[in-house]
């Protein structure tokens, strides 16, 4: 067996989902007995069989990623409930194992996956998706780059043909439920013990927070951003959100303004003052940086994974 063959075999075994009682399954994905599979490359000793020795790694793998995932998505846990969250976690991590050197990126494919597997969110799919978007935006905003921000004077030079880029730490969200206060509360209460280390992780009990009895429904527009190294959720007006979104997608300022105010109930004579106030506020928060092409932004984003 070459080194690569052995590593493929071992990884397959280590990443095999655990049974309901957190032991190693008796059968591999291909139906082969895990007892035989383990014996094929792991030596037994006087206390443990090959299966039992391999099982230590199998359990360790799952405990580590399950606890990292729970730490990143406590709000989702509260929305779907403890038992459903455990199922969702294991199913997601089985379908989407880590593709990054850092556990930070464990949840990067969760939104897409949940859209394809709505059954894991139960009756509250929309709500669960909103919370996932918000919790993932928090992770991105927490440690994405901050580039040199354009000042109010820089912004004064803009014309209809100008293009702008948003700070990599700014994420724009359109949610259907007012989940922001709830998620803030859950995160505030979460102990910040998340350190990557080379120690073994034990099966930690996942504590979940209760969801408030009623959450207001309706369109919520948010800018999740970092200011002086703390992450904030800033509520945006609908047109404000649309304008930022269009700029982020590469539209010129003129095009973006058109898109923002199409079907806006805001009287036309009030629009210039409103736009000016937004820009003043954005400049203060440092949300804009010099324009980068879409390709450059894609490369910058890829670096994270």
């Amino acid at each position: 067996m070459t080194l690569l063959e052995l590593q493929r075999r071992m990884a397959e075994a280590v990443m095999l989902p655990l049974t309901r009682t957190d032991t190693m399954q008796q059968k591999a994905r291909n139906g082969r007995s895990m007892m035989a599979e383990a014996a094929a490359f792991i030596k037994p000793n006087d206390r443990l069989t090959s299966f039992e020795r391999l099982e230590i790694y199998n359990r360790q793998y799952w405990f580590r990623i399950i606890s990292a995932f729970a730490e990143d998505f406590p709000g989702l846990g509260a929305v779907v409930g403890q038992a459903a969250f455990e199922k969702l976690t294991r199913a997601y991590l089985t379908d989407c194992p880590s593709q990054s050197f850092t556990l930070r990126n464990l949840g990067s494919r969760l939104e897409t996956w949940l859209l394809e597997h709505p059954q894991y969110a139960g009756k509250r799919l929309e709500l669960a998706l909103d919370v996932v978007r918000l919790e993932w935006a928090y992770i991105e905003s927490f440690d994405n780059a901050t580039e040199r921000a354009l000042t109010i004077a820089d912004l004064g030079q803009l014309d209809g043909e100008s293009q702008l880029s948003l700070q990599p730490h700014l994420r724009l969200l359109h949610l259907l439920d007012a989940v922001d206060d709830f998620v803030i509360d859950v995160h505030r209460r979460q102990a910040s013990q998340g350190v990557a280390s080379n120690a073994v992780t034990s099966a930690k009990h996942l504590r979940s927070r209760r969801l408030p009895a009623s959450l207001k429904r309706g369109d919520i527009y948010l800018g999740v951003h970092r200011y002086e190294n703390a992450v904030y959720y800033k509520r945006l007006e609908r047109e404000e959100y649309l304008l930022l979104r269009a700029l982020d997608a590469g539209s010129t300022l003129g095009e973006a303004l058109d898109q923002a105010f199409t079907s806006s109930p805001l009287p036309e004579d009030q629009r210039p003052a409103r736009v000016q106030a937004w820009f003043a506020n954005w400049a203060e928060l440092g949300w804009f940086c010099r324009h980068k092409t879409a390709a450059a932004r894609r490369t910058a984003r890829k670096r994270v994974n």
Partner: peptide, 25 residues
Amino acid sequence: DHLCWGSVDGRYTHDLLPIPYTWEA
């Protein structure tokens, strides 16, 4: 860093797995 392995084919175990003590390794 560690004398171990932990990823294959772009998938990461986030564990410090033992290397087989072979000449190839």
